[in-house]
Structure formats: structure tokens, C-alpha cells
Design a protein around this nucleic acid. Sequence first.
RNA 1: GCCGCCUUAGCUCAGUGGUAGAGCAACGCACUCGUAAUGCGUAGGUCUGGGGUUCAAAUCCCCAAGGCGGCUCCA
Length: 669
Amino acid sequence: MSITVAGEKSEGQQVTGTTTGLDLYGDDKTIVAVRVNGELRDLSRPLLDGVEGAEIQIEPVGNASPDGLAILRHSAAHVAAQAVQAAHPDAKLGIGPPITDGFYYDFDLATPFTPEDLKDLEKRMTRIVKERQRFVRREVSDDEARAELAQEPYKLELIADKGGATADDGASAEVGAGQLTIYDNLRRDDSVAWKDLCRGPHVPHTGYLPAYALMRSSAAYWRGDQANPQLQRLYGTAWPSRDELKAYQTRLEEAAKRDHRRLGRELDLFSFPDEIGSGLAVFHPKGGVLRKAMEDYSRQRHVDADYEFVYSPHITKGELFEISGHLGFYKDGMFPPMHLDEERDEDGTVRKPGQDYYLKPMNCPMHCLIFRSRGRSYRELPLRLFEFGSVYRYEMSGVVHGLTRVRGMTQDDAHIFCTVDQMADELTSLLQFVLDLLKDYGLDDFYLELSTRDPEKSIGTDEEWERATAALEQAAAASGLDLVLDPGGAAFYAPKISVQARDAIGRTWQLSTIQVDLMLPERFGLEFTGSDGARQRPVMIHRALFGSIERFVGVLTEHYAGVFPPWLSPVQVIGIPVAADYNDYLGEVAAKLRAAGVRVEVDTSDDRMQKKIRTAQQSKVPFMLIAGGEDAEAGAVSFRFRDGRQQNKVPVDEAVAIITDAIRDRVQV
RNA sequence: GCCGCCUUAGCUCAGUGGUAGAGCAACGCACUCGUAAUGCGUAGGUCUGGGGUUCAAAUCCCCAAGGCGGCUCCA
């Protein structure tokens, strides 16, 4: 049979071949590519070129599908690059792949982009889109490609490397396996407006790009390597319609509104005083209540799960981290040492060399020493040592970010010492414990990431790593959650599973980590006596649920947009008298609530009732109890909830029950 | 750490070489009110810090600190 494929309806090309019978002739704004035998192809070449066989599957790819969006965005990247080279003829092309919600394109450019440049470039893009330049695919030999792109040193590098191109090195968008292709942008008169080395596919012509915007620019290393030159990266977004672009921009605004750094200030939770230093937070009273509620519940759950509570100091002699290996592999992440107790003679010669002390970047070595403090029996295992341990890491200045990336943090850290035989069961129940607890904090959409060994930066033998990795894989499988691989992402001493949680607006955060460590027990010479009387080496499992309490506070703040469930709300109830005459009455109601363990305040300021409601609403207090003459006479209060719902003249005892139930059940209201 | 941008009152922001401004918050006074802002007034700033150019710098230049967006790195 014969099918017709629409590049443009007016320019439809006839292609003959056997298909499953799909008619691709459709709206040329919605079909941007087709899939032939599983391979994505744009509409700029005969669809059945190079395709053999009778059962050819052809499937249209709409511009709203994931593939279609990627094609749309990658095509927008080409338009952006054409605009950049029109404005800056000396700009050399890097790469320009699609990314989540958009695209970027890297350029080697004498001067960085300015905000004015972005506006100018958007106008140039609009002109290109209006020209409806066709994207036309052309297969070229290596020599042809080199000749045509002689002015593009980065493209030449990609051509030279094409043999080694892999899916994740960023070169894949330009260079496919084996065959090089160049895409020409042709104007109506077939003159070449622009061209780029590219694997494709692309939309049929630039008129398929109805909605795009340049978002920002920044520097990025060529091929992501700090040793390479920095290029100027232009970030943009592109959507199938203006409405979707608008919705995306609205979504960004909504995300900005729930930024924990902003909410932290607005809700008076925490701050980062300059005088203390970058990445070092202080928690204000309201943030302290929130944090304490988080910690208290965590403690209770750990007691229930047979953890034992330990404490360890914040600084230690360097010797400890030499034993653990941190000074060999993690020194860049540690604050520089304090050199203490050195003594010198009058002439300056060192009489006593002194000691280097370090702030601890991790708690594990301390817990190893607790384990080793006396002889241990197999009867004690699994031994679970828990600590809210404050650690300090010298993060690079450019990476600190609110509470999610700090230099001083408290981990809800525990180390489980167990036998090799216990390891699998322990990991499985541990992962379940972690997920259960996270759910209690309101997160319930997870996937797992398995980070494996980086041979360059690790200690131990292949066999040990394989054993530990296999145990983690088994526990992950038992959880039934999706598992994503992160090759080479492990810490130097152990592979890890990290729990990635999606928040209310779909962003993912790395929270809990579970690591199986066969190295530290060896380095610290940890032993226990088995039932047969022989000494054996325990397995050590590292785990943190919140990751760090700071990050968890930040994540929950954004997840809830500051609208915390009552059990986590800094102020759970605020009493709002209709007039000052009812201050005392509400004071009595508040006393009853306080006696029931509720965090309650009464607003006795001179403001009007409406103003007090507004204030309470802005501070996101879950329960507003309003009382005037009618309520006082009835021995009742009137509720206003955060969402504006009202419930009038509720008897006080009933009101107390409504509030205490919601807190106890950790439900959102 | 690298690149770019930013830093004016507690917060949000005007002010672009010629005497530091507004709104909100704070404080005071009056008002005593039924579900998102009562009115009037007071106070608050070495314009992040240091150096330079200039008759004159919040404004132009240099350095530092802190922040923002990325890169790289990570709980």
C-alpha cells in the first residue's frame, strides 16, 4: 500500500512500501516525526530509506509525546544557535541537547550573554521561526563533515570522537553510531540559512515552534570536565503551544513561591547570618519547634525499632580519620585542621609536635570506636547505634544552597553492626522502616538509586564490593520500587542505595541513604565472638533517613509549601478574639488545649479581627479559633481553617478533640 | 573552586555623579470591631566592607565578603 507523509500538506511526499496500515496524513502541527521499526525519524527524508522487510512498523510521533517534545526542544536549540551565530559570528558551537522542559546550547564566545542579549536573541529566533526554514537531513562522510565544519573546533572534536560516542556523553545528539549527518536549514528559495552537525531528528520546519523562551545563561565546562574550557550555555524552553509555555512559566512561579529559603524567612523558621558564614543555618524558635517535632517522632520510632542512642564529639584528632581513610579520600570535603598543643623553644625549634584536630565530616568512625570499646558477642547483633550527629563538610562556595546544601548539618545517622548472615534480612527490614517513616512525614512517591563503585576512588577488593552491592540489590528488589543505576557514584568505602522522593510538585530529592560497608570494620579491626567461640568481623550498615535534618526541613517546607500538617506546624492553634473583651475567654480555651499538649497562642494585639485572621493565614496556622459574645455564651468557639472553611459555635470540648485528633493522626488539614 | 549577575531600613523595592525614599513589619496614640489589611503618628540606613577616580560617589573603577543562576561536586 502507499502512505502519504506530511512534511507540509502542500509539500507532502509520496512514499511507497508495506506498512501496518497507519495513515500519517494528519495535522502537520501535531506530527513532528515517525518511528519506523523503532527508530525515530523526522519527516525530512523518505521514510522507508534503508528499511527492509515486509512488516514495517510506522508510528506517528506527536509533538506532545515525550519524543515529540524532545524533538521540538532540540529543534528550538538549533534555532537558538542560528540566532546566536547571526548575532555573534565568532561564536563556536558546542552541543545543544534537549533537557527536561527545554534545551540548552553551548557556545565558545568572547563575552558572556547579558539579559539584553537574551531578549535580542529571542527576537532573532522569532524571525527564523517566521521564515519556516525546513530542517533537511543530509548524510555526509567524515571528510565532508570536516570540510564543512572547519570553523567549528568543537564539532571537529565530536567528529573525531564519534567512534567512542556513548549515549550519555552529550555527543549523542550530534553524532549517531557510524553515520554522520548534517542538518541544513533551508529557506523558501532553498538557500541555506544555517547548518549543524546533528543526528536529528527535527521538526519539519521552524514554523513548528510556536512557543519558546530563552531562560538564562551560565558557564559550563566543555564536556562537563573542569579541565576543559568554559563555554557559555544558553538555556531555553519550548512547548507545543503558547498555553503550555504559559503554564510552564506559572509552574516556575509557583515553585519559586514555595522556595524554602523564602518561606523560612516569611515563616520565621531559620536564617543564614553572614556573620556565621556560608552554609551555616540558625533555627529560630518556630523552626526549632518544627525541627523538634520531626526529631521527637524519629526518636520514638527508633526506640521502637531497637536502636540504641549514642553521642559523640564534633572534633577529633586526625588519627581517627587516617584509620578510617577519610583523610586519604575525603580531605577536600573537610574543614582544614586545627593544629593544637605544639610547643616550641625560644629559638623556634619544635619541642613537641602537637596534634591536628578536625571537625568530623561523618559519624561512622566514632560509632566504630563505640563498637570496639569492649568485646562483643554475636548475641548483641544486630547492634544498632543511632545518633543525631552534627557533621561539618567544607562544601565548595559555589554549591551551598539554603538548607539543602550546607556546611554544617545534623544527620539522623545510625550504624548497624551485624553478621554476614543477618545482612540481607536487616537490609530488607531497614528499607521498609525507612519508607514507612518517610510516609509518616507525608512523602509517599519514591524510587531508589543504586550507586556503585568508582574504582579510581575506593578502597577494598572487587569481591567485597560485589557482595555488598548484591545485598543492596536484593533489598531494593524486595521493596518493589523502581531502581535506577548510578555507576561509580558510591562513596569510597561502600556502595549505597539512596531513596529519591518526589515532592508535591514532582521534583525529586535525595533523602535517605543506606550503605553496606565491609571496609571500615576491617580498618578499625572490629570483631565479635561467634557462637563457636571464633572471632568474626561484623558487617556495618550506614543509614540516614532524613539525610540531614536541615535538608529534610528544607524539603518538607517546599513539599508542603509551608502549609505543614498540624503535628509539624510551629503554631498549631491561634485564638482570635472578636474584640479584646473576649481575650480572657479564649485564654481559658487555650489553657485547655495547652493542657492537651497543643501548641496554641492567643492574638491579644490591638489589631482588628480581620487583620489577625490575615496574619494567622499568612503564617499558615492550621486552626484559627475565633470567639465573640455568641461563642462565649454557648461555651463554644468558631473554627476557621487555612483553606477558608468555617465551622461555627463548636463546643469547646469538641473543638479540643478535633484538634488533638488531627495532631495525633498526623493528618493534613 | 569556575563563569555571569546581584547586595540601598527587619522584608520587598525606587533612586545612575549634586542634601537617602516608599510600602509592609516594629513602636506610640486613638478606635473595640464576627472570618484575609482601622486611622494618625514615631523611630529606623557609614547605601555589604575596604581601597581608588572626582570639587562631589549609593551611582564610575579595583579588591574582599555574602547571595542568586548554572558548571563541577554532594546528605
